[in-house]
Amino acid sequence: MTTPKEPFRLAVVSAGTSDPSSTRMLADRIASRVAALAQERGGAVAIDVIDLRELAGEITTAIVSQLMGPKMTRAIEVLGRADGIVASAPVYKAAPSGLFSSFFHVLDNDLLIAKPVVLAATAGTARHALVVDEQMRSLFAYLRTMTVPTSVFAATEDWNAAELGERIGRAAIELLLLMESGFADQVRSESWKSYQHEYGSAGGTELDIDLSSDLMRLATGGSALKPKRPE
């Protein structure tokens, strides 16, 4: 294992709404576990927290008008440079909260490609347990992230069960190993072009223009017609 020169940047996204919030607490426990493990292994982790509660107004504004406010812009910068992400949502009605989903819905499709993510959720009842794997995981698959195998779900009764700590530890080491492997950086440097992108996407950083595409040929007086078979 090589010691990284710079600390890993871990972004924590929490959609908890109370203060203190169990959703945030769960995210913090995962993040600090990642940091502790990294330290044991001679590395370091710098944590940035995005508390969606503070962004609630800007998130709805972005949904109805596409306008990104200053807090959203900062959050996008944090996620754009993150080496790993912990995303934590409360479950109210058999789905991650609207605040959580809405935040990820307004991000550019390209922003999180290949980034390792731990998915976490809290709920008042264990009946919501599969929300993480059945709903949050598919959202993050759409965003083309690298979600770790272990999801962390905490219903009320889990807070006094040692197993929660074990799951947190498992998810944390999975995330750390993915960050250490440099998977996201390598995918981005070697295979970025093979993903579909939109101009100006990835928080305004995706500005490559392929001048040799079919559409570019058409833009410059070429034809969209398929070449005919010789007669």
Binding site: Q66, Y199, G204, M216, A219, T220, G221
Partner: peptide, 30 residues
């Protein structure tokens, strides 16, 4: 936000217009 349209404007030596209403100036500048 469509590079192909800007490319077509450039290819023909026509004008390019950025609507510049809903997005910050940095967006139109690209």
């Amino acid at each position: 936000r469509t590079p192909e349209i800007a490319e077509q404007a450039a290819f023909y030596g026509n004008g390019y217009f950025a609507n510049h209403i809903f997005w910050p100036t940095s967006h139109s500048k690209r």
